[in-house]
Structures are given as C-alpha cells and as structure tokens.
Simulated assay, not measured.
Amino acid sequence: MSRRTPRTRRAPADALTAVSPCPCGLPAAYGECCGRFHRGEAAAPTAELLMRSRYSAFAAQDPAYLLRTWHPATRPQTLELDPAMHWSGLEITGTTEGSAFHTTGTVTFRARYRHHGKRGELCERSTFERVDGAWVYVDGSFLD
C-alpha cells in the first residue's frame, strides 16, 4: 500500500509561502494543507496527517511545531534543525490505525533529502498517540 507523492521541485524553506505546493506532497497549497496546522488554526485529525505536517515542519524549518506535536514523555527540551538539510520528497508506505476512531497509530514512510549536496533517504516507522484528544509523535524506528 504505497502512496507515492508527486515528484515536484520544492521551494527552499525560506521561500515557502501560503500558495507554495505543500512539502508533504498532497495536492494542496502549503497554507491550506500543513500550514494551517503549523499556524495552530487546526489540529491534524489523523496520525498520517500529523506525520505529513511534521515532515513539512522539517522542510519549513519549524522546530516549534515539531516540539508542540511531540509526546511529552519523549519530547526533547530543545530542537535545533540543520539549515543544510533540504527535504525533497515524501512517500507514505503504510499506516496502521491512526484514524479519528483510534488512540494509537503508526505511519511508515520514506523521506528524501539533500544534505551538503548529497542525496539521501530516511525510512522510518513512526508511532503516534492521542494526548488530550490531539495526535502527537511518540517515537520512530529506522528501517533498512
């Protein structure tokens, strides 16, 4: 069950605007997609949408959103993002639970990036839980 996002060239984080394509790969502008979560206007209704919004937060260099959506038991005190890391694509390869009717869920994904001009890929299975009704990231396991 692979949900490949379209391969589009993404704008650098400092050029991300409300009308830019959303980094998460869904067919919507950033402002209407993950931007509304980042601004606090809405909460992600599913674990997958939270994962997509967190990916977009990495792409947009938004550590405040990442910390806000991290489980209190596993959240670091601070988070510094590497400005040389440029996220370039996301593929959701699987989900379990994580809907509006669940309290836990997992999302398996592949994220492509460039770091100092070198391409790479991160494969992870992330775990999510609801805390006070809102989805939060608990932890992740890297996959081969």
Rank of each mutant, 00 (worst) to 15 (best):
S20I: 04
S20F: 08
S20D: 04
L26S: 11
L26E: 14
P27W: 01
P27A: 14
A28N: 02
A28M: 03
G31H: 01
G31S: 02
C33D: 09
C34V: 05
C34M: 06
F37N: 09
E41S: 14
A43D: 15
P45E: 14
A47H: 02
A47C: 03
E48C: 00
E48W: 01
L50P: 03
R52M: 03
Y55G: 04
Y55Q: 04
S56F: 07
A57M: 06
A57L: 06
A57D: 07
Q61C: 10
D62M: 12
L66K: 07
R68F: 07
T69C: 11
H71R: 13
A73P: 04
T74N: 12
R75W: 10
R75M: 10
P76E: 11
Q77Y: 01
Q77P: 02
L79D: 04
P83G: 01
W87E: 04
G89K: 07
G89W: 05
E91W: 13
E91K: 12
I92R: 08
I92V: 15
T93A: 03
T93H: 06
G94P: 04
T95Q: 11
T96C: 01
A100W: 00
F101D: 14
F101V: 07
T103P: 00
T104G: 09
T106I: 11
V107N: 09
V107A: 11
R110E: 15
R112M: 02
Y113I: 03
Y113V: 04
K118A: 14
K118G: 00
R119L: 08
G120Q: 09
G120M: 10
E121L: 15
E121W: 03
